[in-house]
Design a protein around this nucleic acid. Structure first.
Lengths: 206, 206
DNA sequence: TTAAAAACAAACGTTCCAGTCCGTATGTGC
DNA sequence: GCACATACGGACTGGAACGTTTGTTTTTAA
């Protein structure tokens, strides 16, 4: 016997997690309500109860959930510039090559351009990603270094799906690139705390 | 009245082009036979005649078509190392930010991991992309610089879909990154020929 | 010229998925 | 305890997409 809000929170969480898993493992094209429910262990009735518009209610919550986790961990390190954040995430990517949360966001982001309704209901959240996670000042054009780092981050994320993907090789190449740039000195001290918070949020990574 | 092989070639071309357009503009999730046929101006019967297995026959041909175009142009510049090719493509990306052929390949590549049948029928051709386009020696692990450049290239390709995408800003940031690396001297002399061949293949870019 | 084969068009049947509705059970507030 | 709201399960239904079949036109070859 749990309270209603507890039960509600639990099922919503299960649905969100199942959606993320499917997106990461199989991609957006393989996403369906039946599949999500099977994986979450709940009925379609339950999904439609919490998310009446199906994916159009669910996916914004998925993005928000992922963003909240990352942004909260990022915020716990204190106020950071956009560049500090990006270098931190790149070094983090090297240390934890199996962390794939950004893949789910990427999938939704790519799918949104072919689905106007999805684009509409996720637009504000995606704008939040730029500001809350990447620390990008809204309205401003991105700085050259900032944007280059974002491209590298996204490219490295994608590379996991390449047929010649190898986590160590990817680490070396990102390291190679970063060695030719000048990360803010603050990044070094923050890295340990950043990695620790990631492990704490997702113990399976340890 | 055209000969049969001419007609056949023409409709197949139309179907391939239409598929590429949809993939670039709307993504894999929006890809359907009806839509492809509407856009190509042919019937579903025609599509099924040339590609009996639907997308599983069509998409490998799409990838091959794109690969052939790029690899042929690349080969016309003479024998090039993997790094020379990648720097060339990155500089090319800056000069022609509206060229989106790689987006279509990316979409199919991402979708293949959620569709075993699609993965099977595209596997060999994707391996060809690594060797014929990127000049990667098969079997060998990728060099650090080589892989970093590939990540940057893919990330820059993806960035076009970002809400704060701006072609000039992207150009600057890729330029910023490349300025910190050491492209082979040969790249400079080859760039003009590379761009010219792209314009020749797709006059709309001029 | 005529039969065969290829290119194409258009319908049909099936399956899958999403939108909807309703029944039931479990908490919640009075 | 009772009425009510919420959480959930399951079924029904319409439409979209796919796989298949059949019919028609055009080219090819004997």
């Amino acid at each position: 016997m749990a309270t209603q809000s507890e039960r509600s929170f639990l099922t919503q969480n299960r649905l969100v997690k199942a959606t993320i898993d499917i997106l990461v493992e199989q991609g957006y094209a393989a996403l369906g309500e039946q599949r999500i429910c099977m994986r979450a262990g709940v009925s379609r009735g339950a999904l439609r109860h919490h998310y009446p518009q199906g994916r159009y209610d669910l996916l914004p919550n998925v993005v928000e959930s992922l963003l909240d986790d990352e942004a909260t961990r990022m915020a716990s390190l204190g106020p950071l510039s956009a560049k500090e954040r990006l270098y931190l995430m790149l070094y983090g990517l090297m240390a934890m090559p199996h962390r794939q949360v950004s893949v789910a966001i990427l999938e939704i982001w790519m799918a949104a351009r072919g689905d106007a309704k999805l684009a509409r209901c996720t637009k504000s959240i995606f704008d939040d990603v730029l500001t809350r996670l990447f620390g990008h000042a809204p309205g401003q054009p991105a700085d050259a270094e900032e944007l280059a780092l974002r491209c590298l981050l996204h490219g490295a994320t994608l590379h996991r799906f390449s047929s010649d993907y190898n986590s160590e090789t990817l680490q070396q190449s990102v390291r190679w690139m970063l060695d030719r740039l000048d990360p803010p000195p603050k990044v070094d001290e923050l890295l340990a705390a950043w990695l620790e918070s990631a492990v704490k949020a997702e113990p399976a990574l340890a």
